[in-house]
Design a protein around this nucleic acid. Sequence first.
DNA 1: CTGTTAGCGCCTTCAT
DNA 2: ATGAAGGCGCTAACAG
Lengths: 303, 303
Amino acid sequence: MARATLERVEAAALALNYVPNRLAGTLAGGQSRQVAVVLPSLSNSVFADVLNGLETQLEQASHHPILGVSNYDPLHEERLVADLLSWRPAGLVIAPASSTEGTRRMLAGAGVPVVEIMDIDPAPIDMAVGLSQHAAGRAMAHYLVGRGYRRVAYVGHDISTDPRALTRKQGLERGLSEAEVTLTATVLLPGPSSVPLGREAVARLLADVPPGGLAVCFSNDDMAVGAMFHAMGVALKVPDDLALAGFNGLAIGQALPLPLTSVESRRVEIGNLAAKALLSRLEGETVARVQDVGFRLIPGATT
Amino acid sequence: MARATLERVEAAALALNYVPNRLAGTLAGGQSRQVAVVLPSLSNSVFADVLNGLETQLEQASHHPILGVSNYDPLHEERLVADLLSWRPAGLVIAPASSTEGTRRMLAGAGVPVVEIMDIDPAPIDMAVGLSQHAAGRAMAHYLVGRGYRRVAYVGHDISTDPRALTRKQGLERGLSEAEVTLTATVLLPGPSSVPLGREAVARLLADVPPGGLAVCFSNDDMAVGAMFHAMGVALKVPDDLALAGFNGLAIGQALPLPLTSVESRRVEIGNLAAKALLSRLEGETVARVQDVGFRLIPGATT
DNA sequence: CTGTTAGCGCCTTCAT
DNA sequence: ATGAAGGCGCTAACAG
């Protein structure tokens, strides 16, 4: 085509708001440029951060996430995976919610790169990006024991559905047992992790268990912040009467007058790396099956 | 087809993990079942909530969001809209970031339902779901004036890029001016709204402006929470020395020992309604051009 | 009601 | 280089 003609076509395209049809393009054999993303929740800011990281990297390569939220329901998750796969995405990123056998089969047979995120303890179907939740829990135990705590309680949101929170708790118990300490008490409340839930849960805990040298580990920082507010309300001294430790290293915990002891989990980085792993793989490059972003214990002023 | 054959086909489909190809289906004339979603940010929990509401409703109708995050950059937003539209979604939901003329043209000419969310003050291109940000700001002014405050300062994140925060501030000033009060001071810090940013911003404010009967309005609750932590740190009494008011009615603000004065913004509901409006429209029903979810002033203990 | 056929808009291959 | 043709996997509109 002549140069002038080309320009006229482009001008016309602009004027008519022409956008190429990627459905057709992809169907005809092109790369999809859509990436399925399955998350267990969006009410926990943890996954909003991960999604943020994912989206940022994907977009750099003109890819876009198609989103599904499973609500920690395995059957829901299975339906989602099937639904999203029907769009023939270039790849799939999933933070699994105790997946069914069917889900695993679909992922294994999807014929596109699959990245499991958040936990690297289980063997990955294809690739995994995250941290060892078990090691993180264990590290917290060692830290608390090292600080001299012998009475440790656990407070969490509904753990039966959140495999990673469960793994962390197991890591914690494992680490404690290595110092011959067992959990003094466990309080689990249904519903997603949140500030008000933590506040309520710690109130219940203290109804049964006296403070005084007690350290409480929470499933998430927002829960621990709720506990901190409760302590302020009833004039309990933190950490002398009651020590508090969270998980995830959220900004809110670190902004407290007493910075919260926690474990930094690098969520945006997980999103970034997961997207990069996927994109590299699409470029034909070889990518490590497991990428450990690590974690860092944040020794705060609450323990 | 015979019943038995049908069953054999279905069994085979299951065994082979067959998933129909929706690209082909849509290209051949079916409804797309993908909805483009353009948000300005994911680091603010406000949009995570909206997305949560959207996803929930869309999924009920087997629709899925394709996500784009503009980072409050109008040109970025324009590219995103073009990109997402190239997937021929069934509709588009956008929380605009001071959109360009080009963006508006594409939206107007997209040929699919478009829902603008969060603010209902500007005239909608197609449909709008949200609240009057101006009225919300004004209501806060009236409330503060009614409580006897005559010295009011404003502290926000970078407002030049966030049209809704700007509109709220204008509403606030308007409301104050109706009582012949003008803003004592304004502190704007770059970067997304966050707890640490609020903490820093209020510290700067107090370097210039003496507390003592001063009320500070924040662009978002997380900023106000940061200010609260600062006040605790320097032993300033809230609300006597320093009164604080946020915006959005986030859980964190309400869980403080002193519940934060704020304006509830019903973000999940906005997501829900936006999705429903879009889906109804796709069903051929008539939908109100503008849906006001309203807001509610939360009189807390910090003012 | 079942079975066939013509595209949807693009990419890829092959011929010119 | 440029152009024509085939087909991606479906849906819809038709014919039987």
